[in-house]
Design a binder for these strands. Sequence first.
DNA 1: ACCTGAACACCGTTCAAGT
DNA 2: ACCTGAACACCGTTCAAGT
Lengths: 233, 233
Amino acid sequence: MVMESTAAPGNDPRPGRLNRRIVVRAALELVDAHGLEALTMRRLGQSLGRDPMALYRHAASRKDLLAGVVELVLEELEVVAEDAHWQEQLRRMAHELRRVCLLHPNVVPVLVTGPLSTPLGLRPTGTLKPLEQILAVLIGAGFSAADALHVYRAFYGFLYGHILNELQELIADPDENEALLRLGLQRLSLREFPHLRSLAPELMEYDGEHELDQGIGILLAGLGQQLADSAAR
Amino acid sequence: MVMESTAAPGNDPRPGRLNRRIVVRAALELVDAHGLEALTMRRLGQSLGRDPMALYRHAASRKDLLAGVVELVLEELEVVAEDAHWQEQLRRMAHELRRVCLLHPNVVPVLVTGPLSTPLGLRPTGTLKPLEQILAVLIGAGFSAADALHVYRAFYGFLYGHILNELQELIADPDENEALLRLGLQRLSLREFPHLRSLAPELMEYDGEHELDQGIGILLAGLGQQLADSAAR
DNA sequence: ACCTGAACACCGTTCAAGT
DNA sequence: ACCTGAACACCGTTCAAGT
């Protein structure tokens, strides 16, 4: 592995005084620029012009640092206006999360798997903010607390899944993509993968924003319908 | 970190001859038992009674090993019968993937983020098998190739998202859970998290299987409806 | 030709020694 | 009391030296 130059270009390599915010922000920049693996205490220390050990004053561990990075990314979410129908508000929230995730694709793996097995109550407040926000919208729209929770789960489940899907289909170099795809698909045996092999043209065009919008629309319509039914019963 | 005993209990620590299958299976056992971080070349070599370097004969790298582990887990998927309605077949596939993921929760993070930015055509055939299978069901049910791909994406998106959600709510010790949850929620400020704080009782009971079934039902109904509409137009 | 294991270039984190 | 950096206990992987 090749070592990068001492500091990220355009960044003061030696800010006057360190605090958690500065450290976490530098960590995010490292991850954005060079991937999750590049985030090591040593490299981060180097990019801040400090002894790596100095970082432990502002983050308990590498894991804690990653949790901070996730929180920082979620802070970039713009709050959607409250004047629309609840379905429209949720739809906008979905697009907003998608937008932020596409800005920080390297963070997404920790964003979606990060809090695994961390009890909900103990998660950083930054990651609970979106949950509270959605609950507010739904309860404000007349849902019971229990129903709001159901809608939240289905909504966020679909949203996370879509983002993972989209990132998987996102290729660094779109020019290379077509050739690579065709080559890759041809490698597959026609007997075992007849349908997949025939899908090359369709796989080429993927409109993540549209796909997300469609899916959310279907889901919200179905959820609204189901809840209306159960209310009428 | 404490070192485990030389071999996993009940496992022959020194199989006669190594091959990829044996190596990958041992890797899966290590991950199941002790988590992803426990999968190191050195520990795996130790659990097989071999020099760690011997593993490189059967796996190109640790990453390759993890890809093999994911493939192995997906091989545990039982193929669903082909005699039901396509929606029912997809529903069963969803439950089947959920079942296997819950058997190997430690593998799920690599399962869902593993192929990130690996072009679809270059992924291991084991991970493409479920995709081909779903396409077969949908095209067999009369969908066009393009529509089948849309349904697949929405379906798998939701499915992955649900599984991640469920694993996040799954707590190791359910007895401790309630106390921890209440404690955690009380930590939150009432001003910032009024709705979340009031949801403690609802958060306690989570039926992942039912939740998945509901979500899949809504999604499939919506997808079927949408596609019927577009066919009629 | 194959296999082994020493060695390299890293890790996160602890903790004793300095100020 | 605070900060530093040497040291510990690991990593994945390369490659020269053995058989």
